[in-house]
Simulated assay, not measured.
Amino acid sequence: MLKVTENKYFTGQTSNIFSAEVAKETRAFHQQIEGYAPTPLVSLPELAKRLGVKSILVKDESKRFGLNAFKVLGGSYALGRQLAEHLNVDISEIDLKTVSSKLEKPLVFATATAGNHGTGVAWAAREMGQKAVVYMPKGSPEASVKRIRGLGAECIVTDVNYDDTVRLASQTADENGWMLVQDTAWEGYEKIPTWISQGYMTMADEAVEQLEEQPTHVLLQAGVGAMAGGVLGYLVDKLGAESFKAIIAEPAAADCIFRSGQEGEMVNVSGDLSSIMAGLACGEPNPVTWPVLRDCSHTFTSVEDKVAATGMRILGNPLKGDEAVTSGESGAICMGLLYLLLKDDTNKASADQMGLNEDSVVLLFSTEGDTNPDRYRRIVWESEYAL
């Protein structure tokens, strides 16, 4: 149900591309978007008492721009940077509502997605008066397809897994002269994924501003590691690498970061990568953010789907006095992991090794709400994927 490995390659090395200074620019871009507001940082004091830690804080990204997920932060910032570069102006001059008037004709942005990233790109393209073509891997939920099409984008479901869908999107974009907006990187394609991960730092910058006490532990979920690496890079620069312990969580079916953490170098995972955590079902680490995860993570974990499902139920059905958080499968993995570490005696040695105790201030990011409403109800109401 749960695999844990301590990071033997920790150095605490900061990154100049994921820093507090860069985060100021990304947040300034997001702040000028109509409807911007920091998402809530929810405190769960009763759950903290139950689990034996000082406090548990959950950043609730279901409130982000009405899109039910954090991914729009990366997609919008990358589109803004691409358009700024295309127009040869500074990013500060890009206004979503007026940028289309500076172009002779709309540009086409292409991407591959498990759902939330594509939604963010589609939304940002629509807001900027541009076009989007979104590719999704086989088995993608119809709810995600409808949501993306509802934002005016073309959405194509492939018959291959996520990583092969990324390759298809890249090839098609090259053939058609479209701009690829992908949240993972490879040799020769690193600039745009870097912008996307930098965009995610807005979420972390808000959280630090909202904190009343510095966290001792930060739990971050990883697919390719774009969000985890960007957020961790910012936090290390802002708070100090030795001031908290970063714990990375992944689905067991696609635990490329976990395996990479064991080896100290990037390891790919192939196959169907089937998991209810669709947004994390990625088998190839992002080389832009991998160095941050290698250098600054304390622990890597690999968990079964039922752990994320447990996290969804805990957040959605809180103890009396705590606030409910609607968290989807990819959003709730870290809450499920925290619960398992602290309530299952078989994991006590792992919890002790991580330093989780009555003095711990734990920060988590619920990165999505109920983006697949039918499955959310089946898991939370009908106990699918029970422990």
Rank of each mutant, 00 (worst) to 15 (best):
G66T: 04
S92H: 13
V121P: 00
I94R: 07
Q31T: 12
N88M: 14
A84L: 01
A28W: 06
L151C: 01
L96D: 15
I17Y: 07
A110D: 14
S76E: 03
T11M: 06
G115Y: 15
G139L: 02
P141S: 14
L47N: 14
E154C: 07
A37I: 14
Q31F: 08
E154R: 10
K131S: 03
A23Y: 13
V157N: 04
V134K: 10
L73T: 02
T11D: 05
Q32C: 10
M128P: 06
L83T: 04
S19G: 07
V99T: 04
R64C: 12
L47P: 10
V134Y: 08
S15M: 04
V53K: 02
V133E: 03
G66K: 01
A124D: 01
G115R: 04
V99I: 11
G118Q: 02
K97S: 15
A124L: 00
N88G: 10
E85S: 14
I17Q: 13
I17L: 14
D95S: 14
L87K: 09
N68K: 07
R149P: 08
E93N: 14
K59R: 09
G129D: 00
R126Y: 12
A132C: 07
V145D: 09
Y36W: 12
T98H: 02
S15E: 04
P141K: 14
E46R: 13
V22L: 15
G12E: 13
P38R: 06
